[in-house]
Design a protein around this nucleic acid. Structure first.
Lengths: 133, 133
DNA sequence: TATATGTTATATATGTAGCATAACAGTAGG
DNA sequence: CCTACTGTTATGCTACATATATAACATATA
């Protein structure tokens, strides 16, 4: 799993990490039960601080995407990934709404907007082969 | 135009303002050429600082949604709203991708995800009557 | 001229991001 | 038991963003 950070971005480093790990799970590049590097080694690889990686891991653990063992380090959640429950759907709507509003102002019709959303979904999902046992 | 701020939110006040004004334009609640309150009066109404409103107005002006005149105050852009150009489409994709990734992890299939995006779009657009000449 | 507007400047308080360093706690393996 | 590696917690620091408070400036209108 290769992680690309943009230190110039306005998106915090720990959030870039969170996003890319979630994306890795979504694409199947990271599989349930798979081991992640320790906070120290990943931090060293990326040239950032241990606490920044730890912050990302802690977020992912609290959302249920990771399990963390003292000695073993971090694992991708092996059983029962988080579900698309009501709070998540609310969060999803709350984040999509402002984007939709701006798209409408800029004259995108519904089909064009939906096409963009579908493209974003497909660009992640098309990699996910059915190789899980 | 009624503006509702959530001072407990993790979304900055000036960004809540930006979002709600864009949403107002999208719904047709705010029409091109329409006058907005002065930074001082809106700040007083909302119980926030003048600079916070000014920051929101300045953002909207730089993106092309507002015109600002010295004495007259702020106007909704009367001619030629910003277009859905390439930079905007890139920004749109960049913001939708992480949402799509998390949705995939949580087991939402493409139809369910697209349905959510469509719902967000429709909830804003259904108010906008076809009154534009 | 008086007034209301946006604009700019300065200062302050608060919170977040990120880094540096250090120490603590648990677990595996020699 | 001891060592080494893990996550965890704590403290201190810099930098930046948010938001406020005051004040002054520039401009256009009545």
């Amino acid at each position: 799993m290769i992680i690309q950070l943009d230190l110039e971005s306005d998106i915090p480093i720990y959030r870039q990490l969170v996003n890319q790990i979630i994306e890795g799970i979504a694409t199947g590049l990271l599989n349930p039960g798979e081991q992640l590097p320790s906070v120290r080694s990943l931090a060293a690889d990326l040239g950032i601080n241990l606490h920044t990686v730890n912050k990302a891991y802690t977020h992912l653990k609290q959302e249920g995407f990771l399990q963390i063992h003292r000695q073993k380090g971090a694992l991708i959640q092996p059983h029962s990934m988080p579900q698309a429950d009501t709070p998540f759907k609310h969060k999803l709507m709350a984040e999509v709404r402002p984007l939709a509003a701006e798209a409408i102002c800029r004259g995108m019709n519904e089909d064009a907007f939906i096409a963009a959303c579908r493209a974003a979904y497909s660009s992640i999902h098309h990699n996910k082969g059915g190789t899980t046992p």
